[in-house]
Design a protein around this nucleic acid. Structure first.
Lengths: 221, 221
DNA sequence: TCTCGATATATCGAGCCGATACATCGGAGC
DNA sequence: GCTCCGATGTATCGGCTCGATATATCGAGA
């Protein structure tokens, strides 16, 4: 589990960091959290939850004391509420601090960004700039590819390629705005790059400085 | 094979409609053709080619007469050139004429659009409008979802959702332009809605009227 | 009461990717 | 001429993920 992407693990840990939940609720919030970036199905979520329990990152809060229907078969399938263990909390912090090349690949960037509110400013900057350079490489390849094959395809195919290209260009502009905002919000005090394992701070969301992303006005109704 | 998406089958048939090719070349062109819409790996392509041969849609042009190295093992693995059979050509025409709901889902729309140059105008219109209404449904859901969860997430998460929303909005605007162009290019003669199985027309690309998609100017260098 | 949809957990077949292996060929460098 | 290396070329395997499906409860409404 989570050998390939680890995206789901990260997202689940992050959501359960706020509040305990059961799978059904978790999946709904998951697909809202990640927006149009990614969606997961039950066939992926439930095995992942099991794996996270087996790894010790999650604990099943089995509320046998609470309302259990149990009218049916002896197996009595009731709600299973998952809660983050101490190891799970620590694991989430580790994932938050990761600013390696993986963090700005297609599959990972969305989740990392979704939790930027709990991420150090230095990590945020590295991830944003890494993502941008990644997309600029792709842009270069797409442009030369379109230029090379301009004569070989009909107009609709070229239009599809052009549209894809502009999507990536828009993505880069978005990143530029974000980076610019990060730079503008740079206070005099640099973010404390603590590698200690959550020693003193017992607070849940230790965001001392509000990041304030761009686009204060929602734009349209 | 090709039970779920059929995208690869469609794209392979369409590319081999123009010229015979071997797998390696096919994959390169495939990933250019579909732009940023989709990419396929060898692990998907080669089994699909085998399946298409087994179904009788492709023929292996094994050029034993041409240069065969054969210095190595007795199996002598040389180039395998794939060519469209008559059944394959007919299959491609069928896929081109498909304007059912599947044609405007996420997985299928890109390929269908890539071959719009060989598609009837009536089918093009149905697919574009179907796609647009599909995205507008999604837009509605995303908007209400963001409105409902505005207070539950931090600013970066909301920014991610907003950006996803604007991506879909941009997609709808793009479709609007395309549909408008289709309408403007509507000549007096309606496209012959023939359901016959490619009876008279032996021509390769039977595009009698040039579709002329929007954005004549490439915009930027 | 009976149906229907939302809530809730779980599994299975099949598609698809990434990595990898194997083999050839043309060119760069020596 | 020689070797190394990257592009060309075909092929497979492990495993992640999806869509469909099965099962069961609950609240709302006909």
């Amino acid at each position: 589990m989570s050998r390939r992407s680890g995206v789901l693990e990260f997202a689940v840990l992050g959501l359960l960091h706020d509040a305990p939940m059961h799978g059904y609720e978790l999946r709904k919030r998951l697909n809202v959290l990640l927006g149009s970036f990614r969606a997961f199905s039950y066939g992926t979520l439930y095995p992942c939850l099991k794996s996270l329990v087996a790894q010790g990152f999650l604990v099943e809060d089995n509320p046998d004391t609470e309302y259990v229907p149990a009218t049916a078969l002896n197996g009595k399938r009731s709600k299973i509420v998952y809660r983050l263990s101490a190891e799970g909390k620590q694991r989430f912090e580790e994932l938050l601090a990761d600013s390696g090349p993986d963090a700005w690949e297609d599959e990972h960037f969305g989740v990392h960004f979704a939790f930027f509110g709990q991420t150090d400013r230095a990590v945020r900057m590295r991830v944003l700039e890494g993502r941008r350079s990644r997309l600029e490489e792709r842009l270069e390849r797409m442009r030369s590819s379109i230029a090379r094959t301009r004569e070989r395809f009909d107009d609709y195919t070229l239009e599809l390629q052009r549209h894809g290209l502009e999507s990536v260009e828009r993505e880069v502009r978005w990143l530029n705005e974000l980076i610019e905002t990060e730079r503008a919000n740079r206070t005099g005090r640099p973010a404390a790059g603590d590698t200690s394992t959550s020693d003193g701070r017992g607070q849940e969301a230790g965001s001392s400085d509000p990041p304030r992303p761009p686009h204060d006005r929602p734009g349209r109704s």
